[in-house]
Design a protein around this nucleic acid. Structure first.
Length: 573
RNA sequence: CGGGGCAUAGCGCAGCUUGGUAGCGCGUCUGGUUCGGGACCAGAAGGUCGCAGGUUCAAAUCCUGUUGCCCCGACCA
């Protein structure tokens, strides 16, 4: 492709709407343009990157026994009512009606469609297992689309669904998918971690996420630098190894005491007031779970993990109470809440199970209790892990200190079990002639998000630095002086020879000054650049520069095509 | 939905306080000079000032409403 003919409107300045690197660079480098909030057009360069990602995904899905299909984006309401999700999905689902005022959803996911599809045509265990997938646009009316392609309202997703006779079969498919996902992200060239994940609203028994490590990520992964352990912070188990704060072993329980603490509200203030570490305080949080008030109790220096709390309470909506609710239920405002003498159910983090003579609010503004001890002064419903793990805590597998990192979720795999086959009566006859529910799994990859994540991880001050596997073009040829016939002719020759080698190559034939061409080549992130300049040309050579390195190699013109071909080949292995 | 901010030429912005001919840089077009990291000179095109209403002789500017976009929190690929 000649750049003079390529539609890649690059911008010299960063559009003000873009906050994070991938959004800025994809806009600046002429990859994407916004149509409306969270909805983007993919320009030629982006389209090529997306096709490459999809190709890798397809190859790995097919290798894992998947069959590609294409399901409708427009999905009838009735199907969603069968699964009970027409209501559950709420405002996040785009809805529309036809001329007869029949309601439809723009597919946010395809469990309903595929279950009904398979249900209609699969009757026998002989037809199982079945693994179907598709790559298409998904629609989710996100509360807040943001970060360009990272969280769009329309986005490209690969979704796969497995159907098995039993859980053993599901396990096999799940493993295959897990392997396939690992190969996909490795081939794309991303630094990522597979982590244990929450099942969320989709339901099921087990789930893993594939997290691309990037500072701008919206998730936190907790991992062990020493072994394979990695988990989403949302579900990472806390309080492994020896009991935290067990220094009080052998301490005798001191008598409960009420102390005036005028104006001392925050954990920090109160700790300073009593001259004790924050860990000696009890953090008392008033939560509203499905409308019912409950108390969560943590060590003063810990954070509540809402996912764990939700699971423990088995509730749908969990909110932090407001100050007025605190007054209503506890008789005091924030800063003076405590579990002593309270009639609400108290859910305590297991870390505070050991009595320790702690300090907490007295449910009376301006007063705290000293020497509070669980069991004696209050009795929680349960001691459970309801907090976030912190860096440095021991790994549950090998006890090394844990670390954490920000990350972008690019894929997730679920064991669904029979949730949808039950709701939608997807059954088959087994060998014994008995009717059984199909056991399902579902597997997603955010394709457009993966492109953005790749940029988040591969850029420098000059622009994008694509991993070879997904670069829109592998090589760009830049003649330094567009008026110099010899340079242009040499560039044209090399261009033709590279094309013959089946290499994806851009020829910058524009009548621009060299600086412009170099800047654009760097900005759009082409991995290899062949520069044809006067000095090297006299010696019968051209320059080869790798986008990710500073060095320049001088290569004989006669062998440049095979040299580049070998280079690309060896990288693919 | 709650909180904060923005809307003026393709992109980045000024002008608004104190109403009076709509500006700057970049990009675009024409001609010329240039040509190893976003050149220079000369000329040109391009804007219902987000939209609607109001105040006024007069509104980008003041008032009211509305829409869109961005950022921070609960959702997720």
């Amino acid at each position: 492709m000649k750049t003079s003919e390529l539609f890649f409107p690059t911008l010299r300045e960063v559009p003000s709407e873009a906050e994070i690197v991938s959004h800025q660079l994809l806009l600046r480098a002429g990859y994407i343009r916004k149509a409306s909030g969270g909805v983007y057009s993919y320009l030629p360069l982006a389209n090529r990157v997306l096709k490459k990602i999809m190709q890798i995904v397809r190859e790995e899905m097919d290798m894992a026994g998947g069959q590609e299909i294409m399901m409708p984006i427009i999905q009838p309401k009735e199907l969603w009512e069968q699964s009970g999700r027409w209501e559950v999905y709420g405002d996040e689902m785009f809805r529309l009606s036809d001329r007869h005022e029949r309601l439809f959803a723009l597919g946010p996911t395809h469990e309903e469609i595929i279950t009904s599809l398979v249900n209609a045509d699969v009757y026998s265990y002989r037809d199982l297992p079945l693994l179907l997938y598709q790559i298409q646009n998904k629609y989710r009316d996100e509360i807040r689309p943001r970060f360009g392609l990272i969280r769009g309202r329309e986005f490209i997703m690969k979704d796969a669904y497995s159907f098995d006779e039993d859980y053993e079969g599901l396990e096999t498919n799940y493993q295959k998918m897990m392997d396939a996902y690992n190969r996909v992200f490795t081939r794309i060239g991303l630094r990522y971690r597979m982590v244990e994940a929450d099942n969320g609203a989709i339901g099921g028994t087990e789930s893993h996420e594939f997290m691309v490590l990037a500072e701008s990520g919206e998730n936190t992964v907790v991992y062990c630098p020493n072994c394979n352990y990695a988990s989403n912070l949302e579900i990472a188990a806390a309080g492994n190894g020896e009991k935290a704060g067990s220094a009080s072993n052998g301490t005798s329980l001191l008598p409960l005491q009420k102390t005036a603490t005028p104006g001392q509200k925050s954990i920090k203030d109160v700790a300073a007031f009593f001259k004790v570490p924050e860990a000696k305080l009890l953090k008392t949080l008033l939560l509203i779970a499905d409308g019912e008030p409950v108390i969560a109790l943590l060590r003063g220096d810990r954070e509540l993990n809402e996912i764990k709390m939700k699971r423990l309470l088995r509730c749908g909506v969990l909110l932090m109470a407001g100050d007025t609710e605190a007054k209503q239920y506890c008789g005091a405002g924030f800063g003076s809440l405590g579990p002593v003498g309270i009639s609400l159910p108290v859910y305590a983090d297991k870390e505070i199970e050991t009595p320790e003579n702690l300090i907490c609010g007295a449910n009376e503004d301006g007063f705290h209790y000293v020497n509070v001890n669980a069991g004696r002064d209050f009795t929680p419903v349960v001691f459970e892990d309801i907090r976030n793990v912190t860096d440095g805590e021991p790994c549950p597998l090998c006890s090394s200190p844990l670390a954490s990192a920000r990350s972008i979720e690019v894929g997730q795999i679920f064991k669904l079990g029979v949730k949808y086959s039950e709701a939608m009566e997807a059954v088959f006859l087994n060998k014994e002639g008995v009717s059984r529910k199909m056991v399902m799994g579902s597997y997603g990859i955010g394709v457009s998000r993966t492109m953005a994540a790749a940029v988040e991880q591969n850029y420098d001050e000059n622009g994008i630095v694509w991993p070879l596997a997904i670069a829109p073009y592998q090589v760009i040829i830049v003649p330094v002086n567009s008026k110099n016939e010899e340079q242009i002719k040499t560039a044209g020759d090399i261009y033709e020879r590279l094309l013959k080698q089946k290499i994806e190559v851009l020829f910058d034939d524009r009548d621009e000054r060299p600086g412009v061409k170099f800047k654009d080549a760097d900005l759009i992130g082409i991995p290899l650049r062949i520069t044809i300049g006067p000095k090297s040309l006299q010696a019968g050579r051209v320059e080869l520069k790798k986008r990710w390195l500073d060095e320049i190699e001088l290569i004989d013109i006669s062998v440049i095509d095979s040299y580049v071909a070998d280079l690309l080949q060896s990288d693919k292995k």
